[in-house]
């Protein structure tokens, strides 16, 4: 849930990176953390990690400057993608204002992407949020593997599997190299701030 502090003209929103295990959610935050300056980002918190698998969540707060006189504070979270951690995912999703779905381009992950998106839809529905209402952006990650000998899904295939019905913005990217990471963040932040302020105006 967003919080607006009229004494500081500040809005705080929560954006969650969701998607299948090992898809690159944590890598997105790590890239942002090292690429952004201190004045924009706060400290990154990673709790409960086993190897590089997230067991609870990662957290990165950002101060994105001013939009129409409001200063924008955004909290980025990642969920654990592994199927068995659904209770934790639900916890992290609490009060979410915008979502980045990080899909894995690896061919072997085709089904996992679809399952994870379906899991997101269900978890949101349990909190009375319609996946078609909340700001959502897709990121097709690991595009840097194109041309290697690892089989990957085409962007068309990913669109067909994940975005046929939703019709939201999507970005090809490589969280490892930083491609598409900022574009994804910019789009979801814009959408989320718009969504939050529209809800405000209709109060």
């Amino acid at each position: 849930m967003s919080f607006i502090d009229l004494s500081k003209n500040e809005v705080q929103c929560k954006i969650v990176y969701y998607g299948p295990g090992r898809g690159g959610k944590t890598t997105n935050l790590l890239y942002l953390h090292q690429a952004l300056t201190d004045s924009v980002r706060g400290k990154m918190v990673t709790i409960d990690t086993k190897g590089d698998r997230t067991l609870f969540f990662d957290f990165l707060p950002l101060a994105l400057g001013q939009i129409q006189g409001l200063s924008i504070k955004i909290q980025l979270y990642t969920v654990p993608g592994q199927v068995m951690y659904n209770a934790t995912r639900k916890l992290v999703l609490k009060g979410v204002d915008g979502i980045v779905f990080v899909a894995d381009s690896l061919k072997v992950q085709k089904e996992k992407n679809v399952e994870s998106l379906e899991n997101l839809r269900q978890n949101l529905a349990e909190d009375n949020i319609d996946i078609k209402e909340i700001p959502l952006v897709l990121q097709y990650n690991k595009r840097d593997l194109g041309g290697s000998n690892i089989p990957i899904l085409s962007v068309e295939e990913l669109q067909e599997d994940l975005n046929k019905e939703l019709q939201v913005s999507s970005f090809s990217g490589s969280a490892l190299k930083g491609d598409g990471v900022f574009e994804t963040l910019r789009e979801i932040s814009k959408g989320t701030v718009k969504y939050v302020s529209r809800k405000l105006l209709s109060r």
Binding site: K43, Q75, Y77
Partner: peptide, 23 residues
């Protein structure tokens, strides 16, 4: 709040990362 937003902080949290503490 229970989604992790920091509403108000008071006192002397100079050495404390209050945003992380809230989350």
């Amino acid at each position: 709040d229970r989604s992790g937003n920091l509403i108000v902080n008071r006192g002397d949290p100079a050495t404390l990362d209050v945003v992380a503490l809230a989350a």
